[in-house]
Amino acid sequence: MKRPNTVVAPYFLITPYILHFLLIVAFPVVFSLILTVHRWNLLSPMTWVGGTNILTLISDPLFWKSLWNTLRFLIIHIPLQIAIALVLAEILNQQLRARGFFRAVFFLPVVISGVVVTILWKQLYASENGVFNEVLLALGMGRVEWLTSPLIAMPAIAIMATWKNVGLYVILLLAGLQSIPKQVYEAATIDGANRIQQFFKITIPMLNPVLLTVIILSTINGFSLFIEPYVMTGGGPLNSTLSMNLFIYKQAFCFYKMGYAATLGFVLAVVVFAVVAVQRKFFEKEF
């Protein structure tokens, strides 16, 4: 016979979660939907504007610019990150000494606050006296305007983000590599496949699920790009590093356009879902 305790207990135990969910998920999502059809600066009462926010968004060049900036970031960041992480993970998977040490070093930037990394790289990238430019000058080459050229600033941020995050993906890929049975490689060697063939015919296909995880994770991270441009460039020069998140932040907390910012948030969420869905589809088809 069930005692009353075990009938009531579950509901008692999940109550904190339910309350928390109602407060920080359910209410905000509903309220966000309401905001998308209103104009509101937090102070005066909300005014109904219907589809105006979404129309404003479609004709807002800054929105498209921020979307393009974020995509530009991802196009550089993801392939670079996967290539470097794959190479490092593949090497760490060999029988070598001090692998634990190298693993720990590669992972160090992952645990350190993005604020620290951004401040540090801002100085490395500095046009006058920055470490990178000093090295270039010492090698007899010219300065690069890392953060002050609209063309280079976003790629520079993408390189920094790769440096910060790649350690995590090395660990994920390494775990994936270790789960591939050794016998598969032994059989391939007997059949005369060389290392390079093995890498493309065995390693990559077997790593497929982990690669997809890596791509999705870095996509989601990429769309949350905020503190890096906030500290490094403030979104400039000429809005070339204005990420979608920074754009939303500015609309909401510099201009107090709450309705417009909420609309941007929804659209960004849809974009993230769409991009991730495309990546999933591509992976299912390709392999």
């Binding site: 999502v29 966000s32 905001l35 979608m244 939303i248 910012a261 909420a262 929804f266 960004l268 969420a269």
Partner: peptide, 8 residues
């Protein structure tokens, strides 16, 4: 995505 809930 947290962007949806940020403003509210």
């Amino acid at each position: 995505p947290f962007q949806i809930t940020l403003i509210p």
